[in-house]
Write a protein that binds this DNA or RNA. Structure first.
Lengths: 397, 397
DNA sequence: TTGTTTTAGTAAGGTAACGTTACTAACAAT
DNA sequence: ATTGTTAGTAACGTTACCTTACTAAAACAA
């Protein structure tokens, strides 16, 4: 009845150490003797476990000719088989949706972009349809899935809130919807949170920056935080709703001014139109788009400079709050507005006047794929947790 | 050469499970059969480990008469021995210093309050002197120590910064200083952080509120955050420096107004004096202290109400930022100003106008001892990590 | 060519720590 | 006194580890 502790635990621990070592060494291969050295396990133990893992298909002998030139018997070099597991990842945006399939190492072996559709339900239906088609060439179901959604995800209620750009989330329980229609564990996560995780893996593969924030500035403004290498979601899952940040205490009966009212893409264009109406000089059309406005600001356009000053100032104030409260080591700006270096430079300039020793501010390098990369990161972690028990546990039945 | 994995690990894991069960059951005692049931270990395993632990002095048979009235053979009830380990805790304040010694369960068996002294070095010297005296009645050195300091502690440099109320920290490496003069691991931590942890253990002994903030408002303003049950320190250790939070974007060449300029105890008194100078009605002396001002505000004093409105409004703005960024489930206010219910009520009122679904705001119940209680919590965790290996590891030599 | 050195891997044996089974111990209820 | 129930122990077998001692396969030197 028991068999809890003694029988398999130690074996799983040892197996995990071997797999960890192999992941750490990747893409280098390792001999069993080498694994024994780095893990501290004995050679016979390693050999026994490796043989089981090889039978289970998790590892294989590298076909490459064992590297010559070194002394002693040449080693049989082992490597993890990238295709033993795969995961489904997706980023559901307001108009487009990115879907990908990742292998054991997080490489996206397939990727597709489709229209989101009119509402949340149609988006998730299309997601299932397209992904099942994409998964047809694999002979096993995905180990897990991670889906980014454009709103706050409340785990407890399984609902997405404040997805202003994509209607229909009120009547959809995304986790239940997907779990009913596919195999494997399902993770739902806010897209900005995933983008933060994506940028983190981009910046430091070994994740040395462990306290880290990513601000996405586009139609709306969102903030994702990584704390100690893990996503931070807050008490109710709504951490990072930085778009609603008040720029100052509103006067009684006055309409409060939020960050989004000054620094989102639509607000920037509106401010630019107003600046020209107010008589400021400009060579641009009053309905110019944000990249054009920022470019003009760089080359001395008065109206554009006024707008950039206002926008970047407000964002710098918000970042100063973020720094004093959460003290991230680095802030990455993403989204249509945020990834613009002109914008980031302006924010940095303002921030330096507001606080001492500001963190590094950098524009995103991943662009639209940041959330997808973050989703891969979540999937990979989820996979790592179950991989060894699945491989070695089945061995014992 | 190896002996890493196989020999002791499983034994330690099992021992840890037993000890965890005993801690969870405390103050109830447990029979070996009961431990076997809750841990999933077999009865012989539990018996063997318990016998070792009893020899090591960690557990003992409760002297109480085994509870009668139940069926079957009466159990020998075991309990943890509270005195096997003890820890030193202290909260170094600007003028006073609290020192305590805690047992295995976090009960403070001794507690003393002494003067801090002129500077940091004298404070730490007194801390060592007094604590060694207090520890004389114990026959073993403390397992670890946790010391709260009134400033930002930078782990990497082993320095305390911004301890404005206690000079002399520039030339003191507190961790090295203490490690040189006492046995056991030493933890240095910001006092507001510890207060947050203290309030958390107060509110929920089982720590169900895992995302949690404590704001201390007194001479200065500080913020401590607990994320997922753990202290959050930020990238460089300076998270929570909320006193420097700007209330609005400063105009060019204007002096920026920070939260501390409006909501700290000295600022409140200054604002009150100014309000009277400006001709506002008041029954109070212009140099009244903060409790008097708040009390007067409650009973309709005009000048006092103006000040409270301004102070609480600024604090509410800061809390709104905190909520949008970090989304804590609860915020506890401590310190001379913060623990005043009049203040907390006023902040809550303002906050409800600023954001939807604000978190619970409550005044601190621990008062000045919050940081000490938090220090106990840190010590206990540190002790838990090493307890079982120490007890069972020695057995094998 | 032949031995020596070096490293990889395997076989055999011993040990730690677990669980299972089967027992005894001690009490309450009948 | 007998029966039932629960606590605890003894004996045994199993798992999975490490250690030691071996063989395998190559480079290198004589």
């Amino acid at each position: 009845m028991n068999e809890a502790s003694g029988s398999g635990v130690l074996r799983l621990l040892s197996g995990q150490r071997i797999v960890d070592a192999l992941f750490a060494a990747h893409p280098q291969q390792m001999s069993r003797a080498g694994i024994a050295r780095t893990t501290g396990l004995s050679k016979p133990t390693v050999s026994a476990l490796m043989s089981d893992m090889e039978n289970a298909g998790l590892v294989r002998v590298a076909t490459e000719s064992p590297k010559l030139g070194s002394l002693g018997r040449p080693a049989a070099l082992y490597e993890l088989v990238p295709t033993v597991r795969h995961t489904l990842v997706a980023d559901v945006g307001a108009t487009k949706m990115l879907i990908g399939i990742s292998d054991l190492f997080g490489n996206l072996v397939t990727e597709r972009e489709i229209e989101t559709g009119a509402d949340a339900r149609s988006a998730f239906t299309r997601l299932i349809d397209t992904s099942t088609e994409m998964l047809r060439s694999f002979d096993s179901p995905p180990s897990c899935a991670c889906i980014g959604v454009p709103g706050i995800y409340r785990r407890a209620q399984d609902r997405v809130e404040q997805a202003l750009n994509l209607p229909g989330f009120d009547e959809l329980a995304p986790h239940a919807f997907l779990t009913d229609r596919m195999e494997g564990r399902v993770h739902i996560e806010n897209d900005v949170n995933l983008a933060a995780l994506g940028e983190l893996t981009q910046i430091s593969a070994d994740q040395t920056d462990r306290d880290f924030a990513a601000i996405s500035v586009g139609t709306g403004i969102g903030l994702g935080m990584v704390v100690g290498g893990d996503l931070y979601r807050g008490g109710t899952g709504s951490a990072g709703e930085v778009g609603s940040l008040l720029l100052s205490l509103p006067a009684p009966n006055a309409v409060p001014v939020t960050l989004e009212d000054v620094a989102s893409a639509p607000s920037i264009r509106k401010l630019f139109g107003q600046a020209i109406e107010d008589g400021q000089r400009s060579n641009l059309d009053p309905s110019a788009d944000v990249p054009a406005i920022f470019q003009a600001a760089k080359t001395g356009d008065q109206a554009a400079q006024t707008v950039l000053h206002k926008t970047a100032g407000a964002m710098a104030l918000a970042v100063s709050h973020l720094c004093l409260i959460a003290d991230p080591e680095r802030v990455v700006f993403g989204g249509g507005v945020g990834s613009n270096p002109v914008f980031v430079d302006a924010v940095r300039q303002h921030l330096e006047e507001l606080i001492d020793s500001p963190p590094e501010l950098t524009p995103s390098t991943l662009g639209r794929r940041a959330a997808l990369v973050g989703a891969v990161s979540v999937s990979l972690r989820s996979m790592h947790e179950t991989l060894v028990p699945e491989i070695l546990g089945d061995q014992r039945r």
